[in-house]
Amino acid sequence: MPLLLLKVNRLSAVFWDVDGTLADTEMDGHRPAFNMAFKELDLPFIWDEALYNKLLAIPGGLRRVKLHAEACGVTLTQDQLHQVRDRKRLYYLERVRQGHVQLRPGVRRLLQELHHAGVQQWIVTSSGSASVMALLEQIQKQIPSFDGVVTSDDVASGKPAPDGYLLALKRSGANSAASLALEDSAAGLSAASAADLRCLLTPSSWDAATLRDAGGEAAAVWDHLGDPGHPATLFSGASCQEGSVTLKYLETLL
Results as ranks from 00 to 15, higher is better:
residue 2 P to T: 15
residue 11 L to T: 01
residue 11 L to E: 04
residue 14 V to M: 12
residue 15 F to D: 00
residue 16 W to R: 05
residue 18 V to S: 08
residue 20 G to A: 01
residue 23 A to Y: 00
residue 24 D to K: 00
residue 26 E to C: 04
residue 26 E to I: 00
residue 27 M to I: 14
residue 28 D to E: 14
residue 31 R to T: 01
residue 32 P to I: 07
residue 35 N to I: 02
residue 37 A to D: 00
residue 38 F to H: 05
residue 40 E to W: 11
residue 42 D to S: 14
residue 45 F to M: 12
residue 46 I to S: 13
residue 47 W to D: 04
residue 49 E to W: 04
residue 51 L to G: 11
residue 52 Y to K: 07
residue 53 N to T: 15
residue 54 K to Q: 13
residue 54 K to C: 04
residue 54 K to E: 14
residue 55 L to E: 09
residue 56 L to K: 11
residue 58 I to C: 06
residue 59 P to E: 01
residue 61 G to L: 08
residue 64 R to W: 05
residue 66 K to L: 10
residue 67 L to N: 08
residue 67 L to A: 03
residue 68 H to W: 11
residue 68 H to Q: 11
residue 72 C to A: 13
residue 78 Q to K: 15
residue 78 Q to A: 14
residue 81 L to H: 12
residue 81 L to W: 09
residue 82 H to D: 15
residue 84 V to Q: 02
residue 84 V to G: 01
residue 86 D to Q: 13
residue 86 D to I: 04
residue 90 L to P: 02
residue 92 Y to S: 03
residue 94 E to H: 11
residue 95 R to I: 05
residue 95 R to C: 10
residue 96 V to H: 01
residue 100 H to K: 15
residue 100 H to I: 07
residue 102 Q to K: 14
residue 104 R to L: 14
residue 105 P to F: 14
residue 105 P to V: 12
residue 105 P to L: 06
residue 107 V to M: 08
residue 107 V to Q: 02
residue 110 L to W: 05
residue 112 Q to Y: 14
residue 116 H to F: 11
residue 118 G to E: 05
residue 118 G to I: 02
residue 119 V to M: 03
residue 120 Q to H: 12
residue 123 I to K: 03
residue 123 I to C: 04
residue 125 T to H: 08
residue 126 S to E: 09
residue 127 S to E: 07
residue 127 S to W: 07
residue 128 G to F: 11
residue 129 S to Y: 11
residue 131 S to W: 04
residue 131 S to T: 10
residue 133 M to R: 15
residue 136 L to I: 10
residue 144 P to V: 10
residue 144 P to Q: 12
residue 147 D to E: 10
residue 152 S to G: 08
residue 152 S to T: 07
residue 152 S to K: 13
residue 153 D to G: 09
residue 153 D to T: 01
residue 155 V to F: 03
residue 156 A to V: 10
residue 157 S to C: 12
residue 159 K to Q: 06
residue 163 D to R: 09
residue 165 Y to T: 03
residue 165 Y to K: 02
residue 165 Y to A: 00
residue 166 L to K: 12
residue 168 A to I: 05
residue 171 R to M: 10
residue 171 R to I: 06
residue 172 S to R: 00
residue 172 S to I: 02
residue 172 S to Q: 08
residue 174 A to L: 03
residue 176 S to W: 07
residue 178 A to R: 15
residue 180 L to F: 03
residue 180 L to P: 00
residue 180 L to I: 12
residue 184 D to G: 00
residue 186 A to H: 14
residue 190 S to R: 09
residue 194 A to D: 07
residue 195 A to L: 02
residue 197 L to F: 01
residue 197 L to D: 05
residue 197 L to K: 04
residue 198 R to G: 12
residue 199 C to T: 09
residue 200 L to R: 05
residue 201 L to E: 01
residue 205 S to T: 13
residue 207 D to I: 11
residue 216 G to Q: 10
residue 217 E to R: 13
residue 221 V to K: 07
residue 222 W to Q: 07
residue 224 H to S: 05
residue 226 G to R: 05
residue 228 P to D: 15
residue 229 G to F: 02
residue 230 H to P: 01
residue 230 H to S: 09
residue 230 H to Y: 10
residue 232 A to C: 11
residue 239 S to N: 12
residue 241 Q to A: 13
residue 241 Q to N: 13
residue 245 V to W: 09
residue 246 T to Q: 11
residue 246 T to F: 09
